[in-house]
């Protein structure tokens, strides 16, 4: 039964995969039309790589701060962090970018698209990460906290030596997924005219009407960014594995 199911699933997946490849590969492309835009696409990819890498670091920082705030045990920071997370998660990123750049950054005279994009993406992704981190911390059994208390650890030592090392492994897979989302979400920065990867494809398309030729490079380009994160996450999961 188990074997039958796995054979069936494999066949369906393989057939679907082959069909998609065949359809995509047999389409007649006009690569020549898009060729003049190749350097634009490459520079867009480079911008996406930079903004994603910076926001990845930023979002971890924001996520840790929000988690710390929510778990602080103090009512006011906990409430404020909660509100921040709910508002950010409950509203469209597109709107956040528009308000963040044209209203907020503009009102304080800040005109760096990269800088504003970095802050907004970090806040957006950080809000999601903080929920993943909080879930990880709260999944550590009460008995571990009690044991740390009995040993005489301070609160900070309990996090440093007992809770965080165990929570890291639990939050890795979900965090890697969030990082992949972050990279793809950076394409919305086109609304503040950041010439990132998707924006370049969009421009190439509107100038040439070679839609597939303009957008297909995105498949490879984004995969090249997200796949290493997936690999790194698996590697780290194994490194932090403690049950045998």
């Amino acid at each position: 039964m188990k074997l039958a199911v796995s054979i069936l699933v494999s066949v369906i997946l393989a057939a679907t995969f082959c069909f998609v490849i065949w359809v995509v590969a047999t389409h007649e492309y006009r690569w020549a039309a898009i060729a003049p835009y190749r350097w634009n696409l490459l520079s867009g990819w480079w911008v996406t790589l930079q903004i994603s890498a910076a926001s990845l670091v930023g979002s971890v920082a924001v996520g840790v701060l929000l988690t710390a705030g929510q778990l602080s045990g103090h009512a006011i920071p906990s409430f404020l962090c909660r509100v921040f997370v709910e508002v950010i998660r409950g509203t469209p990123l597109l709107t956040q970018i528009l308000i963040g750049y044209y209203l907020i950054a503009n009102s304080i005279g800040w005109d760096s698209r990269f800088g504003v994009g970095l802050v907004i993406l970090s806040c957006f992704s950080g809000a999601y990460l903080s929920e993943i981190f909080r879930g990880g911390v709260e999944s550590i059994p009460k008995s571990q906290w009690l044991s740390a208390l009995a040993i005489g650890f301070t609160g900070a030592q309990t996090y440093r030596y007992v809770v965080i090392p165990q929570a890291i492994r639990r939050v890795l897979p979900a965090s890697a997924g969030q990082f992949a989302n972050l990279i793809k979400d950076s394409s919305l920065l086109f609304v503040i005219s950041m010439h990132e990867f998707t924006m370049q494809a969009r421009e190439a398309n509107s100038n040439t009407y070679a839609t597939f030729e303009a957008y297909l490079p995105l498949v490879l380009g984004y995969f090249l960014l997200t796949f290493p994160i997936s690999l790194l996450s698996r590697h780290l999961e194994n490194r932090f594995r403690y049950e045998h």
Partner: peptide, 19 residues
């Protein structure tokens, strides 16, 4: 905390740190 540090406590379910 000072008081706990001077004592030793053992739990029913061991509570070793698994990592």
């Amino acid at each position: 905390r000072e008081f706990r540090r001077r004592n030793g406590f053992l739990f029913q379910s061991f509570n070793l740190f698994p990592h």
